[in-house]
Design a protein around this nucleic acid. Sequence first.
DNA 1: GCACAGTCTGTTAACGTTCACAATCGAGCT
DNA 2: AGCTCGATTGTGAACGTTAACAGACTGTGC
Lengths: 337, 337
Amino acid sequence: MVRPAREPAMTDVAKLAGVSHQTVSRVLNDHPNVREQTRLRVQAAINELGYRPNKAARLLVTGTSQVIGVVSRSSTLYGPAATLSSLAEEAVKRGFTVNVESVRTLDRQPIADAIGRHLDQRVAGLVIIAPVESANDALDDLPEDIPLVTIDGDPGRPTELVTVDQEAGAYAATRHLLNAGHATVWHVSGPDDWFDARGRISGWRRALTEAGAEVPPLMSADWLAASGYRNGQILARMSDVTAVFAANDHLALGVLRALHERGRKVPEDVSVVGFDDVPEAAYYIPPLTTVRPDFDAVAAASIDLLLAQIDSGRRLGDRRVLTPTLVTRESVAPPRA
Amino acid sequence: MVRPAREPAMTDVAKLAGVSHQTVSRVLNDHPNVREQTRLRVQAAINELGYRPNKAARLLVTGTSQVIGVVSRSSTLYGPAATLSSLAEEAVKRGFTVNVESVRTLDRQPIADAIGRHLDQRVAGLVIIAPVESANDALDDLPEDIPLVTIDGDPGRPTELVTVDQEAGAYAATRHLLNAGHATVWHVSGPDDWFDARGRISGWRRALTEAGAEVPPLMSADWLAASGYRNGQILARMSDVTAVFAANDHLALGVLRALHERGRKVPEDVSVVGFDDVPEAAYYIPPLTTVRPDFDAVAAASIDLLLAQIDSGRRLGDRRVLTPTLVTRESVAPPRA
DNA sequence: GCACAGTCTGTTAACGTTCACAATCGAGCT
DNA sequence: AGCTCGATTGTGAACGTTAACAGACTGTGC
C-alpha cells in the first residue's frame, strides 16, 4: 500500500465505499435518510482509511465550530484554576472543546484582544471570567449575536452571569463568628476592584450591622498569603481583636502565621475564618473554618447557560447564583471570658 | 448604510480598495512586493469594513493553524496549573494561541482522544503534560510529522522533553538535611507511577547512600495534604525521626500539622523540607524550606522547542532539563543533641 | 399500467482563503 | 526603439466540507 501524500478526505472515503461524498457527509452527520447497508459500507471505508473529518472545511461552510472560547487571567489562584479545569471537562462532556485565551492582566484591552482572537476562530460561544470592572468593559464592543456567559462578572450588567453568592458566604462566615460570642469581626479583604471582594465585604458588613456590632476598619489586601501575613501582624498587636474573617484561605493562612508568631493562639485567643476551602485548608494549623463555593457547579452552570444560548440562537439573560456553604473546623471558638 | 448580511470577506476589501483579493492577501501576510501606496489603500479598506481574516479558510488551504494544542490533566495541583497558565501566556507572546484539552485521568485512552481532537483542529503542534507512564503510551500512535513536546514525560522516551531535574532537587533537599546534622532523612513520596515522584525518590536515596546514611522505608502518598497528614501521624510517633523530606509542599503541610498535633516541634524536634515552593509555603508554620522549580521557564522552554520543530518541519530530539533551586526557610535546623 | 409520495442518492455550487502561474509596468541598458 | 529584469498585480484553481436541488428508486392506490 502506498503511503498517501495527503490525509484521506471525504471523496476518498466515498470512492472506496462506492458512493458520493455527500452520502459520506450524511453518514457523518447522522442524517436520517441513509440506507443501513450504505451506512455500514461508509463506516467501513472510514475505518479502513482512518478518515477524520476536516473541521476547518466544515467550519468554513457552516460558519460555526464546536469550540467554546474562554478568557481568563493566567493565574494560579485556586478559584479561577479550579473553575477553568472544570469548564474544560464539562464542555468535553457536551461534545464541545474549550479554547483558553490567557491574559496577563484584567485590563480592558488585553481582554478585548483575547476575545478578538476567539472570534477569529469562530467560536460557538464565549465564557469570560471577568472578576473586575475593567474586564467587563471589554464586553461592550461585543457583537450581539455571540453567545456569552460571564463568571464572577459585574452583577449590574444584564448579560448571562454565573457567580457565587459572595455576600451570602461572607454573611454566614461573619454570623458564625458572632454566634460564637465575638463582639465583632475584623475583615481582611481582597482587592476592592474585584466583585468577589466587594461582595464579601458587604456580606461581612451586613452581618455586623444587623447584629448591632461595631464595624471595625477594613484591612485591604490582595489575594495572597503574604498580604494576609502583613495584615495579620497588625491584627496580632491589637489585643481586643478576637475574630478575623479573611477574604480567602491563603490570606487566612498568612493571618494564622502572624498570630502564631506573636503568640496569639487560634482559636483560643483569636478565631479565624477563610473563604474558598482550598484542599489544604483542613491541614492548616489549626484546621481552617471556611466557606466553600462549588467551582464544579459554577463551571457546569456556565456551560449550561452557554449551550442554551447556542441552541436557541439568542441571549436569554439568564443568570445563576450559587450559594456557598460554611465548612466548620477548629479555627473558631468562643472568645476568652 | 445597509447592515451586511454576512461578514466582510477578502473580496469585499479588494473591491473597496480597487485591487484583487490576492493583493489583499499579500498585504495581510506582509508579502514584500506590494507598493506602499497600495498597502495603505488596502489597510484603509480593511479598517473601514472592520474586516477580520477567516482563519478557517486559511487553515483549510494551508493545512496548519497558529494554534498549539495542550493536553493536561484537569487539576488544581500547583505545578500543572502554574505550567499551564505560563504556557498560554508564552504562546500568545509568540503569535500562537493555546487550545487546552483537559482529561480527567492520565490513562492512555482519554489522552489519545484528547490528542485526536487536537489533530482534528489541525493544531500546529502539541504540548503534552504526561507525568505518568500511561500518558506517554498514548504518544505511540502519533503521526511522525506533528511537532510534539512532552512536559514531565518519560525520560526514557526519545521525544522532545522539557522537565525539571527532580533528582537533583531531591538530592539537594536531602543533602541540606544531612548537612544540618541529621543521621538520616525520611521521605514521604508522591504516587510512584509519576516520573516526578520517582525522580525525587531516587535523588533522596542517592543522597542517603552517598553519605552512608541508613535508607528508611519509603512512605508512599498521593500529592495531597491529606495523605501528608496521614503519613505525618505515623512519623510523629517515631521518636527517632528527626528529618522529613516531603515530595511536595502540600504533603509537607500535612506532615507539619501531624507533627504539631503530637507536640513535636518543627524545626526543633523534626526538620521538614518540601518541593514546589507554592506561594503559601513561606507562610506555613514554620515557613517551609523547599525546592523551587521554575514553571515559567518550563513553559518557555516547551514553547521554544515546539516552535523550533514547527519552523524546521521535523522532530529535533532536543530536550531541556531545568535545575530547581533550594529555598531555605525556618523548617530546618540541626537535630537536638 | 400509471401517477404519486416517500426514501434514498448524486450533482453542483458555495464558503474565504492561499498557491502557482501569468500578465503588466517601469527602469536601466544596449 | 527594443530588450531584460525585477517589482508589482491579477487570474484561476485548489482546499474539504455542507447546502440546495435534482434525480432515481421504491411501494401504494387507483
